[in-house]
Each structure stands twice: as C-alpha cells, then as structure tokens.
Design a protein around this nucleic acid. Structure first.
Lengths: 194, 194
DNA sequence: TGCATTTCTTAAGGTAGCTTATTTTTTTTG
DNA sequence: CAAAAAAAATAAGCTACCTTAAGAAATGCA
C-alpha cells in the first residue's frame, strides 16, 4: 500500500489505532514532483508539511550574493517544510525543489491542526520530530563553527553514505558551506593521499 | 509570586486551568546559580529543562582545539537544556554556565513526562517551543553561511539589543563565530566610520 | 583600596577558502 | 546518437579572518 511508509514513520514514535490511522491517511494528498520542479518558492507561504515517499528533495535559500545554501536534503522517509512560513503563515525564504523525479504526501496546515484536535497523540509525534530536527541542526551549527571544510565533507560522507553518490557535488558543496571549486580541490587532495 | 513569570511564559501558547497550573507548578524546583557556576558540564546527562527567572546563562560547547562556541544565551524568561542529552538520556557536549548570579526553575525529565500524561496540553506547548527554536537556529545557520562577521555582529546587536551591553564581548564573539581579537577590530572599524 | 585577574585593543604576519577563468567530463535532451 | 547544457577539475591570485604577542583598560576580590 502507498501509505505503509508514512505509517511506519509515524509509528516509530506513537502507536495508532486503526481508526486513528484512517483519520490521518484521509488527510494526505499524494503529489508527483518531476525533477527540477519546485514544491515551494521563496516569498510564497508554505501551507503543507511534506513527506517524501520516493525520490529526493532539497530545501535551500538564496542569499544577497546569489549563493544557494542547502538546509536539508529529503530523500524517501523524510519530512520537509518551511517551518518558519508554516508556523507564521507568512512568506518565507525557503525553496523546495525536487532533485529527482519524486513522490510526496502532503498534509495541509489546516488538516494538521484538525489532526491535533481529533488525534492529540500527533501533537506528541510532531513534538518529537521537531526536537530531533533541533538536535541535528544544532550539531550542524557547531560543526560549521568548529570543523574545517575537509572535516565537514568527511562528516557528510559518514552521515549520509547513500546520498554521496546520488547527489551532484555542487549540492553537497551548498550543504557543507563551500564553493563547488573548493570542494573539488578537497576531493582531489584526499584522492591523492590514497 | 515567584511563578508568575513562568506561567505567563506558558500561557503565551496554551491556556491552563487553575488545577493544571498547580500540577505544573508543583513540579518546579527553584535553584540559585551564582555567577560562573555550572548547571551542566559536558559528558554529564542533562536531566532537566531549565527556565531562567533572573540573571543570564549560556549554553556552549568546547571543540577539539579548545575553542568555545556559544549556542544560546538564556536571560530571564528563556528555556535552556541540552536537548540531545535530555532526549537520548546520554552524556552530551553542552555546558550550561551562569554568566551572572541567576535564578532558575527546574523541570525534571521524569516530571515532564508525567506532565505530558496528566496535562496533555503541555505536549503542545513544548512542540511549539521546539518549532520556534528550530526556526531561529535554522536562521542562524543561514546567517553563518551567508553573512560576513561584521554583518553577523550587526545582526546580533539588532536582535539582542539588551544583551549587547550586558555580556562580555568575548562571549558575543563565541556566539557569532569569530575570535575576540577579530570582533575587537570589527568594532574599532565601525567606531571610526561614525 | 589596591593587587590580581580577566577582558579588550592593536598590529604584523599567515592561511583556509574564495574568485575568476579555462578546460575536461558528464549528463540531458531533442 | 549528437549537440547542448550542466557539472567537475585545475590553477593562479586575492581577501577575510586567524594567530601570536604585548600593552592598556576594566573588573573582581582580599
């Protein structure tokens, strides 16, 4: 079934009755996202939480100098949204783009709030998700402040071994915070060592 | 009353009945933290959420080169904890230290979980807190990736105007991610401009 | 109040990572 | 399968920020 993945994702943190599953599943809207298409563009209001069932998305911002900064990659089994925009219901700076042909399930903000009312357990689920995201982004901030570009690259390889051969190097550079040129020389350097 | 501040903090996001307030308040343990004392040291397990009622704390990590990185300042009306350690119940890397003589209220992890059971609304409160923290730390990551040290300093001044004259410059440097020497030259530079 | 400690300033020299530009390789698409 | 477009590699010169060091100012404590 199409919804097995998301239910399994949820049930990693909370247990659901059949009826509760049905309420939830009934709220989900499937959507196809061809490669290079955008789910969200900056200055738009983000009105959904997105769960990826196939493919891979990225969330990124563009700074005043036109540089892109990748905040998150979202392969299958990951959630992504512009939390700022979603919470504040204001235009945000995040772009969400498909890096591969992808498939997602959307949960609208309205439904999400109805869900909190009808199945309060979900309040707990999204609390846990938010706490986990907080932990990992905090770690990333520390890494950016304390590791060299080389170390950040090695860290990325360790942390996301499956993404490393799947993503363009350029995107990885925009994630670890260096120019593509410099990432290229880093890799050349470590190739020579071996 | 001593607990007015924390109740007001909570009621910014959820409404509480008298009885619910009492359950919650009954769980809080007040504690004094003299300047320079540590609430938490790295490699310890963080067993409490901390709410600051007076003074100011900081949460920081120390990297392999001995440099300190400040993740958060927590003046009155702020929450602080090592979310990683608190969630995983494992030793973390965060230090929490009082920068001034401070007063805090502690909510133990055990009580917090009891609270979720007895007053499920708190699940919502801490979800919202986590979501807001997520938004602000994500913004900070983007700023670190896209702004110069000077711009980050100016941003800090705008964002925390009350802290700027209250904290040692050294601590601000450890927050924005530069050496104290360089922050000093940044400030000298902008002093000349005027 | 005065000494000790910490914090801040200034300056010279060094380096990680950026910029710009060119070439090669890979990927996409008609 | 070929042409076009995008991505990656390489290299030379540059700059923001770091390192080290030493003196000045501010702060804490006996």
């Amino acid at each position: 079934m199409d919804n097995a993945l998301i239910l399994q994702n949820i049930e990693r943190h909370i247990d659901l009755e059949k009826a509760e599953q049905e309420v939830f599943v009934g709220m989900l809207q499937p959507q196809q996202l061809p490669r290079k298409s955008f789910f969200l563009k900056e200055n738009e209001i983000c009105r959904h939480s997105v769960f990826v069932t196939a493919g891979c998305l990225r969330g990124f911002t563009v700074d005043h100098n036109g540089f892109e900064h990748v905040l998150q990659f979202a392969p299958a089994d990951w959630w992504i949204a512009d939390m700022y925009s979603l919470v504040a219901e204001k235009p945000g700076q995040l772009n969400i783009e498909a890096l591969e042909d992808s498939q997602v399930l959307l949960l609208s903000k309205t439904d999400q709030e109805r869900l909190y009312r009808e199945v309060p357990k979900f309040e707990r689920f999204f609390r846990i998700i938010a706490e986990n995201s907080l932990v990992s982004i905090r770690q990333r901030l520390v890494d950016n402040l304390s590791l060299s570009a080389q170390q950040r690259y090695e860290q990325f390889c360790q942390q996301y071994p499956t993404l490393i051969n799947r993503l363009p190097q350029k995107q990885i550079a925009a994630y670890i915070g260096v120019t593509p040129e410099f990432l290229s020389t880093i890799r050349a350097r470590s190739r020579k060592k071996k």
